[in-house]
Design a protein around this nucleic acid. Structure first.
Length: 595
RNA sequence: GCCGACGUAGCUCAAUCGGCAGAGCAACCGCCUUGUAAGUGGUAGGUUAUGGGUUCGAUUCCCAUCGUCGGCUCCA
């Protein structure tokens, strides 16, 4: 059901309601600003928007006024009427609306739809009218404004947006709104938004003392606090071992490299706007690395490779620095310095299919092991600007597609979305606020092998060019951690919890026993703290709950006497007193199962 | 980078029209010795992001810079 949602959405009542609400909103806005220009206003997931060019910036007060007027229009019982017309007729209607004229031209030429996307067939030109408002539109709409429930419509925010998404064009004002069948559905949606905010990784990161970003250090640069770092170390340990078990060889490489290296790799030609200014070392320019590939390539090139040596799989937690424009930075998920769980695979052409399949398999294994289940694959194909032979692109793209299908992954094809150097598979997951983040990526590279003149000696004794595949599974440790925090709402599975057990002595006289228990558990490899603060047990439990510590062990007179511990779980569940060995067994079971 | 909003104690937030900058939590010092989500008294904590301007007087008004948030564009 879920994977078919998008196909059906455009056929749904909700889609019509939202699309129609967008028209009603445009009417209300243009009544308020008769000289305003209107552009497009589609339904989106959970709502709709409309983009306008207006004489002044909108305020929250304006939204209230617009919303109120929308309600009036809706209860006016106006019909939505469609009319198909010629381009010239349409131009007459929208003669004062430059954006509409541009849209009409696109439709007339049959090349672009209203969002500027290329169209396969030449579309008809139609308008929808209701009340005193007419809009260029292909529908669909409700039949009558009365089918919109005014109590289930709400305007949410106003934001800037470029005309046709092009930053070189006019900045418009976009109003976001939402519409549902019933007021109750609207309430539920707004509640969902509130709940999602509670698990925002930026909020939890501070509350759980996981990480911070210091203004003095700089935006987009992450400070991992002890608890966050512990989670990272555990994930890294797990993944490192998994790599070694799966035929990867671990390497390390420096953070900077000479300009010449980046000239050879092509980064200074194609990627310089994402790189930081070079530093001068003895008159020579060095750049902080935005990617790890040139370094792994140098390791490959450090000696002559035989066809027998391949595939070579070099893996590293490689820290890279990329210039990201200030407006795009976002907590842990979009930063300027980050560490990729990066690897480069060098292989013979006859091995590439197998390598892709293995890489995808391995990626799914690692993601699932850390608790992520819900992701979507994107297959990105050849863009307009590309290097290499189109026939190779075809072979590589099909190899990627077969790998996705062999693993029964739902996927969408992103036509032309590949990098200039090769096609790729991306795996994306959603954060708490339904924003989609890319984690895994498996990318072909037709460029580097050529540029660095990589070769291996074949069976025939002659040099051949190897294929090269880049891949990152968790993507970056920073982004992955951000997604992980939201995925678990900070309540990490026991094996990843920075503190697994907190021991809560009821009174001072229980400290010695508490320490003894802690010592035993630490001896078994558990991460344990004793809460010796001069606080009541209730307060200690409350704090442990809020820190989302999996196990609380309360020890008082009874436990000391009987040599037991009273277990409480962060779920609120209270299994009660049990021998320490019983608890230990239970905890170790949960850890081994990765819960 | 662009459009808009915002920036007060470690955190969450007050401060009427431009008139002595405050509270809760956290921290620290005590008292209480505690049984499953906040015991209690006290102490300390501020160049109101930074720099300039207007004013007798600026947290408040204006300008610039830095940063944060929501989007756009771009991406791991």
């Amino acid at each position: 059901m879920a994977e078919r949602k998008e196909e059906r959405y455009e056929e749904s009542d909700l889609y019509r309601i939202r699309h129609s609400a967008a028209h009603v909103m445009a009417q209300a806005v243009l009544e308020l600003f008769p000289e305003g220009k209107y552009t497009i206003g589609p339904p989106i997931e959970d709502g709709f928007y409309y983009d306008f060019e207006l004489p002044r910036s909108l305020t929250p007060d304006d939204l209230e006024v617009i919303e109120k007027r929308m309600h009036e229009i809706i209860v006016g019982n106006h019909l939505f009427e469609k009319r198909v017309l010629s381009a010239d007729e349409a131009r007459r209607i929208f003669k004062d609306q430059p954006y509409k004229l541009e849209l009409i031209q696109g439709l007339e030429q049959g090349s672009f739809d209203e969002y500027g996307q290329p169209l396969a067939e030449k579309p008809e030109i139609s308008v929808y009218a209701h009340d005193k408002f007419i809009d260029l539109c292909r529908g669909p709409h409700v039949e009558n404004t009365s089918q919109i429930n005014p109590a289930a419509v709400k305007l949410l925010s106003v934001a800037g947006a470029y005309w046709r998404g092009d930053e070189n064009r006019q900045m418009l004002q976009r109003i976001y709104g939402t519409a549902w069948h019933s007021a109750q559905e609207l309430e539920e949606y707004l509640w969902r938004l509130e709940e999602a905010k509670k698990r925002d990784h930026r909020k939890l990161g501070r509350e759980l003392d996981l990480f911070s970003i210091s203004e003095d250090v700089g935006p987009g640069l992450i400070l991992w606090h002890p608890k966050g770092a512990m989670v990272r170390v555990l994930v890294e340990e797990f993944s490192l071992k998994a790599h070694l078990d799966n035929g990867y060889e671990w390497v390390f490489s420096p953070h900077i490299g000479r300009a010449h290296l980046w000239e050879t790799s092509g980064h200074l030609d194609f990627y310089q706007e994402s790189m930081y200014s070079p530093m001068d070392i003895e008159g020579e320019a060095y750049y902080a690395k935005p990617m790890n590939c040139p370094f792994h390539i140098q390791i490959y090139k450090s000696r002559t490779r035989s066809y027998r040596d391949l595939p070579k799989r070099y893996a590293e937690y490689g820290t890279v620095y990329r210039y990201e424009r200030s407006g795009v930075l976002h907590g842990l998920t979009r930063v300027r310095g980050f560490t990729q769980d990066d690897a480069h695979i060098f292989c013979r052409p006859d091995q590439v299919e197998e390598e892709i399949s293995r890489a995808l398999e391995f990626s799914l294994y690692v993601l699932r092991s850390v608790g992520l289940r819900d992701f979507k694959a994107y297959l990105s194909t050849r863009p307009e600007k590309y290097v290499g032979d189109p026939a190779d692109w075809e072979i590589a793209t099909e190899a990627l597609r077969r790998a996705i299908e062999a693993h029964n992954l739902p996927y969408v094809v992103d036509e032309g979305g590949g990098a200039f150097y090769g096609p790729k598979i991306d795996l994306k997951v959603h954060d708490a606020l339904a924003r989609e983040w890319q984690l895994s990526t498996i990318q072909f590279d037709f460029n580097m092998s050529e540029r660095f003149e990589l070769e291996f000696i074949g069976e025939d004794g002659l040099p051949h060019q190897p294929y090269m595949v880049h891949r990152a599974l968790l993507g970056s440790m920073e982004r992955f951690f951000g997604v992980l925090i939201e995925h678990f709402a900070g309540a990490f599975p026991v094996w990843l919890s920075p503190v697994q057990v907190v021991i809560i002595p009821i009174a001072d006289r229980h400290y010695a026993y508490a320490r003894e228990v802690a010592g035993k558990l630490k001896g078994e490899g558990l991460r344990v703290e004793v809460d010796e603060r001069n606080e009541r047990m209730n307060a200690k439990i409350r704090d442990a709950q809020m820190q989302k510590i999996p196990y609380m062990l309360v020890v008082g007179d009874k436990e000391v006497e009987q040599g037991t511990v009273a277990l409480r779980l962060r779920s609120g569940e209270n299994p009660g007193a049990m021998p320490l060995e019983e608890f230990l067994e239970r905890a170790q079971g949960d850890i081994a199962a990765r819960e």
